[in-house]
């Protein structure tokens, strides 16, 4: 075998080896890129899947300029059309962001829970029925007591979910 042939075989072997190395390196980069793309596509699919719910959420949850503005909050749960009356001493027990849902949670208290006065038990049941399916508020316990002049209704841990102030 001539020297030139030996050198060409050696050079060719090096070239092929280098080619394999380059191909493998690029292949690995391509795979890594594909993984990122796949993750991004998965993300986009999930985003689309949750997009409608997110729109509903934004439309459903209360919006106030100040998350501690409980007067507006109480107003927004539509007590006005009813004959019930908010407690005289109503305070904001806590108002903080709930990172899991990306919204604020404002909890009210008037002593031990939040007491409302209503004219009748029927009206109280109506209010409870209307609150039953509301996602923008959470109530931990409900108490209805007949009193001389009507009915007192108390909510334990009455909280409102409030969108982040714009």
């Amino acid at each position: 075998m001539s020297g030139a042939l030996i050198w060409s075989v050696a050079a060719s072997a090096i070239l092929i080896y280098s080619g394999v190395q380059v191909e493998q390196a690029l292949d690995q980069r391509a795979e890594a890129q594909t993984r990122v793309t796949r993750a991004m596509n998965d993300w986009a699919n999930s985003f689309e899947q949750y997009a409608d719910a997110s729109k509903r959420w934004d439309a459903m949850m209360l919006s106030v300029k100040d998350i501690g503005d409980f007067v507006t909050l109480i107003d927004k749960i539509n007590i006005a059309p009813l004959s019930w009356r908010a407690p005289d001493k109503l305070t904001v027990q806590s108002a903080k962001v709930d990172e899991s849902i990306g919204s604020y949670r404002t909890c009210l208290a008037s002593g031990n829970g939040v007491d409302f006065s209503l004219s009748s038990a029927q009206e109280a049941i109506g209010v409870i029925a209307s609150f039953s399916n509301r996602h923008d508020m959470t109530i931990d316990g409900i108490h209805i007591n007949r009193e001389n002049q009507g009915v007192k209704m108390r909510f334990d841990n009455l909280c409102f979910i409030v969108n982040r102030p714009a």
Binding site: W43, S46, S132, N133, M137
Partner: peptide
């Protein structure tokens, strides 16, 4: 995405007071 997922789960489930 996690927030959106949590919101959807919350909306799909009945409210806690239900």
């Amino acid at each position: 995405l996690r927030v959106m997922q949590a919101r959807k789960a919350m909306l799909d489930a009945a409210p806690v007071q239900h």
